[in-house]
């Protein structure tokens, strides 16, 4: 039984239980996201995947697809809202791309490129977030955290280590590590943990490999994330 919904006027087939975003990706259709990862249950925090389903705003990563649903995603209205969400993330942290090792491979930056975010519009918050370079193999630069919790989830659900957690709340929410000292070197974090390879931005960086791939030759330097993501999944 082939069930389908409409995404921007074109049919997308889905199986029972698939979310809008999952079904779209499986059909080769891209819906922007940051906190969503194919190997993890939906998280729904970044809200970049907002779409209008039957006229109502919903998170495409979390809402199961339903027969006959009319979904709007790649529209000026929704893309405008996505751009504003990116602008919010850019003013929240300290995203100084020219000095970031992740530049060109960063999903936040790539989304901003594709959604044509040329400025952050709002006033910058310039938070003070010291880095943690204590670990022999890994550097943590909290300035770039977007609270997708992928490291939290990977460490908890796959690595079984619970290295990362979020504490406080609201705008004061921040990432902490599993040690009374607050230092990564006092945890059992290892460079081959899944959590060390899952950060979509430049928080969790491996030491001694910086800039091995030159700027200008990186994942999103020439190809938009919508294409890269589809090539990866096919």
């Amino acid at each position: 039984m082939n069930r389908e919904f409409m995404l921007d006027g074109l049919p997308v087939a889905f199986t029972e239980g698939q979310t809008i975003l999952q079904a779209a990706r499986a059909a080769g259709r891209y819906i922007p996201s940051l906190c969503w990862h194919p190997d993890f249950p939906p998280h729904g925090s970044c809200k970049l995947c907002i779409v209008k389903a039957n006229g109502r705003h919903v998170s495409a990563c979390a809402l199961p697809a339903r027969e006959g649903m009319e979904v709007e995603s790649d529209t000026p209205e929704i893309n405008g809202e996505r751009r504003a969400l990116l602008q919010m993330l850019f003013v929240e942290g300290n995203h100084f791309c020219p000095s970031c090792e992740k530049s060109g491979n960063c999903q936040l930056q790539a989304q901003a490129y594709e959604l044509e975010m040329t400025s952050a519009r709002f006033d910058y918050l310039f938070p003070v977030r010291p880095v943690d370079a204590s670990h022999p193999d890994i550097l943590l630069d909290f300035n770039r955290c977007i609270f997708c919790e992928l490291c939290v989830r990977a460490s908890r659900d796959v690595d079984g280590k619970h290295i990362f957690a979020l504490t406080e709340r609201g705008i004061h929410k921040h990432l902490v590590v599993n040690a009374e000292s607050g230092r990564l070197s006092d945890t059992d974090f290892a460079a081959d943990d899944l959590a060390a390879h899952i950060c979509p931005v430049g928080v969790i960086l491996h030491k001694r490999v910086g800039f091995q791939r030159p700027i200008g030759q990186r994942d999103y330097d020439h190809e938009p994330i919508s294409q890269v993501a589809m090539e990866e999944s096919s």
Binding site: S45, L48, M88, L89, E92, R169, G170, I171, K173
Partner: peptide, 15 residues
Amino acid sequence: ESCGFCTPCRLGTTL
């Protein structure tokens, strides 16, 4: 009182 989970509320209330 924002829990800070999602981008629009964490930043929207702050802005």
